Amino acid sequence: MQTPTSLQIRISWPSGHLTASLDDSPTTQALTNALPLVSTARTWGKEVYFDTGVSVSRETGAREVVEPGTVAFWTDGDALALPYGPTPISRGDECRLASPCNVLGRLEGDPGLLATVRDGDPVRVELLDA
């Protein structure tokens, strides 16, 4: 049995950074082919998202409600979405994305660090060497 390969990326902003492990998927491959990338952070409730310039289709396992720290790809906005708590459309404490997103993997460490990202901050995403 083959173990799925896990790629690691670093997401950096002026006041911090997080590492994420991504599962092998068509969306992950499209994203990693575009790295490194620099974008502008947007915030929506307790979610940080930013444009990637990558356009992919919604995958069959796309989900709207995810765990804090999920790395999701918002196909409607060509953006990475990083929820760490409730958004304006959440019910209770759930992380509800704007629409179903492709789930790419998970952040390592405390997703609450994303609270230090300010709307308009520059964000850099790069591949970490295995």
Rank of each mutant, 00 (worst) to 15 (best):
I89L: 11
E94I: 06
V56D: 03
A62F: 04
R10V: 08
V117M: 05
T27M: 04
G61E: 12
P86G: 07
D93A: 14
E67P: 00
E59C: 03
T52E: 11
P14H: 07
L31A: 06
T87W: 01
L31G: 07
D76I: 03
Y84P: 09
P36G: 09
W44H: 02
L114W: 09
V38D: 14
P111Q: 11
A30Q: 11
S39T: 15
P68I: 01
I89D: 06
T5M: 10
L107A: 12
L22E: 01
I11G: 06
H17G: 09
P111V: 13
S6W: 08
G69Y: 00
L7N: 02
D129L: 13
A98V: 13
Q2H: 05
A72R: 04
Q2L: 14
P122H: 10
G112S: 13
L104W: 03
D110R: 11
D110T: 06
T75I: 02
V54I: 08
P14K: 10
G61Y: 06
I11W: 02
P26G: 01
C95Y: 05
V65S: 03
D119Y: 05
S55L: 08
G92P: 09
V48A: 10
V117K: 11
S55A: 15
A115Q: 13
V54L: 08
P68F: 01
R96C: 07
L7E: 12
T40H: 10
L18Y: 13
S25N: 13
R58W: 00
T43W: 05
V66E: 00
T3M: 12
T43V: 13
S57F: 01
Q29E: 15
L22H: 00
R10E: 15
P100Y: 00
R58G: 01
P86A: 14
L104D: 09
S39C: 08
D76Q: 12
V65G: 02
A130P: 15
D93N: 14
R118N: 15
W74C: 00
Q8S: 12
S6T: 11
G120D: 11
S6I: 12
V117F: 02
L82M: 10
A62V: 00
Q2A: 13
E108Y: 00
D78K: 07
P14T: 12
I11N: 07
G45E: 08
G77A: 15
T32I: 14
V65K: 02
G69P: 06
I89R: 05
L127C: 04
R106V: 08
T5L: 14
R58T: 11
L113Y: 03
V66F: 01
G105K: 04
P68S: 03
E94K: 11
P36R: 08
I89N: 10
A79M: 11
